[in-house]
Amino acid sequence: MENLISIALDSIFVGNILLAYFLGMCSFLAVSKNMQTAAGLGVAVIFVLSITAPTNWLIYHFLLAPGALSWAGLPGVDLSFLKLVLFIASIAAMVQAIEMIIDRFSPGLYAALGVFLPLITVNCAILGGSLFMVERSYTFSETVVYGAGSGAGWALAIISMSAIQKKLRYADVPDGLQGFAINMITTGLMAIGFMLFAGISL
């Protein structure tokens, strides 16, 4: 149990998937101008990561890992090189399915975050979450916690960024720095801030 809590806290704060591992930057920079859309995209990412990480764990452990196909009578087969293709295919399929389910059961929710779902399919953070899960050999429960935690960390970063950008609009930013450059430097300062969490022991 402590292991799960420490993975959750690590993925939200110290090992924040955006501020420490640089994943998900494209949509982070594009969408952080407006607090509403940032919050919507953040929630959508939490949703998608919590669902796709465990699904990909199942795919990896029952189809691809060395020795995984022993239930089908093929214990010597190692298909782990196919993980990239299968992960991205499953992510695309799951996001499409999530979009259809949300549209069917909750038009309000669909209006709020449905427009982001196609954007999320190619978000590096989603594929990155699954790949890190494989690399760190998490168990199923650890993967669920890691997926939700990474999504929460990403959402925290994008919401903080949109708040800071609101303040930056009143600042006197030099011409060359406007737009991309000042956003990058701000993200760097946020990353330094998040690194402070490494000193906290629970």
């Binding site: 501020l19 011409d175 720095l177 760097g188």
Partner: peptide
């Protein structure tokens, strides 16, 4: 560490924008 990369790339793009202008 991670923040160093963000800051360097911000400075890089600042340089590039100023030169292009």
């Amino acid at each position: 560490l991670a923040p160093g990369a963000f800051i360097i790339i911000g400075l890089f793009v600042w340089l590039e924008h100023s030169l292009l202008k």
